[in-house]
Simulated assay, not measured.
Amino acid sequence: MSGAPPPAGQAAPPPPPNNTVYIRNLEESIKIDELSELLRELFSQYGKVLDVVAKKNLKAKGQAFVVFETVDAATQAIKEVQGFSLHSKPMVLQYARTKSDATVKQFGSPEEFELHKRRRMAEKERKQALAAAEAQKSLKRAAVAAPAASSADRPVKRPLKSTNRSDGHAIPDEYLPPNKVLFLQNLPHDIGADALSSIFGQYPGFKEVRMVPGRKGIAFVEYETNEGAISAKENTAGMQLGEQTIKVTYQRQ
């Protein structure tokens, strides 16, 4: 669920009316449970509240989402609560940019809800991977900018690899930047290349499935472009095959 404005220089049209209200400029010192209760009590007077979402992580602090049963209730709440002070801070309200879990679960089919969750998780992983790649670039720039030390002063450092942090530990699979090859894990041991091809061959630029001789439960899927791999990953992350939930990440470069 997203409501925050786009980064500077990337203007986007305001989100269309929907039943989820995005709130920012909330007092960050309020405990999450207390904040959720306050928001539910405040907004319930405008209509039935399906869910209140407020997160603990630093990036999301001071923000929350209130999910109403109807668009009219959300519209009325935005109109009347805009600028209302909660703990001496005026709240800023707008419609959320994406559908909430509660909305899709109530008004969509079980299949739509599962697809919505997979896409949301894939988008989260994509952003984490891009952030990790940017952090890695920053480390490389810092290493290049630092004065070169003489070999007499200290040992020569080995160059950083694209998927390693400066402390020598590998970046987790979930944070790897996108590329054309997907790495599949936790596969049923009896699944073969044909079955996987029927699943991953639906996405643009599919080239092949590569099983690993002597190793069960893993495989690689290659596409012609990064875009094809990204599309496949977004739509298959968390997919259930038999009794197992498969893990889909990008191949480590």
Rank of each mutant, 00 (worst) to 15 (best):
D190P: 08
E125H: 14
E222P: 05
E174A: 11
K56C: 10
L35G: 05
S138K: 14
V49A: 08
K247C: 05
V81I: 15
G205E: 05
S2E: 10
E174S: 12
L130Q: 11
P110Y: 01
A131T: 11
V104R: 01
G47W: 01
S166G: 15
P14W: 01
F65T: 01
P13N: 10
E37A: 14
K99D: 06
P15A: 11
D72H: 15
E208M: 07
P188H: 09
K124L: 14
K161H: 12
D101V: 04
P13M: 09
V49Y: 04
D167S: 04
V209F: 03
L115R: 07
A4Q: 08
A54T: 13
A170Q: 12
E224P: 02
V181I: 14
K127E: 14
E234K: 09
K140F: 10
G192T: 06
E34Y: 10
E174K: 13
E134H: 09
G228R: 01
E227T: 07
K140I: 11
I30H: 03
A54W: 07
A229M: 01
I199Q: 03
Q202S: 13
T236C: 08
L187W: 00
S231N: 13
A145V: 01
L39V: 09
E111Q: 12
P14K: 05
P213F: 01
S29I: 11
A131W: 10
G83S: 02
Q244N: 13
F220K: 05
Y250T: 04
K247V: 10
S109H: 06
E111W: 07
D33G: 05
P13G: 07
G192C: 03
N57D: 15
A219P: 00
S162C: 09
K31F: 13
E224Q: 07
K31L: 15
K207V: 08
R118I: 02
K207H: 06
A195V: 06
E114L: 12
L187C: 02
E41L: 14
L39S: 04
V248N: 03
K31T: 13
Y223V: 00
A219V: 03
I23G: 02
A133T: 03
A170G: 07
R97G: 05
K99V: 03
P204G: 12
Q253E: 15
R126Y: 11
T249N: 14
A54F: 10
E134K: 12
K140W: 08
H87R: 15
K105G: 04
P213E: 06
K180C: 09
E80V: 04
Y175F: 11
A149R: 13
N179K: 05
A195T: 12
I171T: 05
Q251C: 11
K207F: 04
E125Q: 14
V49Q: 02
P17E: 06
E123P: 01
T245M: 10
E224M: 04
A102T: 05
I230Q: 02
M1T: 15
P188E: 09
A131G: 14
E41R: 15
L115I: 11
S44E: 06
N186I: 09
L184E: 00
V144P: 04
Y95P: 02
K99A: 07
K127R: 14
E134M: 11
L86H: 04
G205W: 02
K140M: 10
A142K: 13
A73K: 08
N18W: 02
A73P: 06
E222R: 13
R210C: 04
G214M: 05
V66N: 00
I230C: 02
P188I: 08
L50W: 07
G62D: 06
